[in-house]
Simulated scan of single mutants.
Amino acid sequence: MPDQSARPTREELHAWRTFLRAHAKITRALEAELVAEQRLSLGGYDVLVQLAEAPDRKLRMAELADAVLLSRSGVTRLVDRLERVGLVSRERVAGDGRGVVATLTPEGLDTLRTAARTHLAGVSRHFVAKFDTDELNDMGTLCTKLID
Rank of each mutant, 00 (worst) to 15 (best):
M1N: 12
P2W: 01
P2Y: 06
Q4C: 08
P8I: 00
L13G: 02
L13E: 08
A15F: 08
A15N: 10
R17Y: 03
L20I: 09
L20E: 12
R21S: 07
H23S: 14
H23K: 15
I26K: 13
R28H: 09
A29T: 08
A29E: 12
A29M: 12
L30R: 04
E31T: 09
E31Q: 09
A32M: 08
V35I: 11
E37Y: 03
E37T: 09
Q38C: 12
L40R: 05
Y45C: 06
D46V: 00
Q50R: 11
E53Y: 01
P55S: 07
P55I: 00
R57D: 06
K58M: 14
L59W: 03
M61N: 07
A62P: 06
L64V: 02
A65I: 02
S73P: 09
G74H: 02
T76K: 11
L78A: 04
R81L: 12
L82S: 01
E83F: 05
E83M: 03
R84F: 02
G86E: 05
L87A: 02
V88E: 05
V88R: 07
E91C: 05
E91N: 12
R92P: 01
V93G: 08
D96H: 14
G99L: 01
V101D: 06
A102N: 05
P106F: 03
P106Y: 02
E107F: 09
E107G: 11
L109N: 11
D110C: 07
L112E: 14
A115W: 06
A116T: 13
H119M: 07
A121Q: 10
V123E: 05
S124W: 03
S124T: 11
H126Y: 09
F127K: 13
V128I: 07
K130D: 05
F131E: 02
D134C: 09
D134V: 11
E135C: 11
E135P: 14
L136T: 01
M139L: 15
G140R: 13
T141K: 07
L142T: 14
L142H: 15
I147A: 13
D148W: 09
D148G: 14
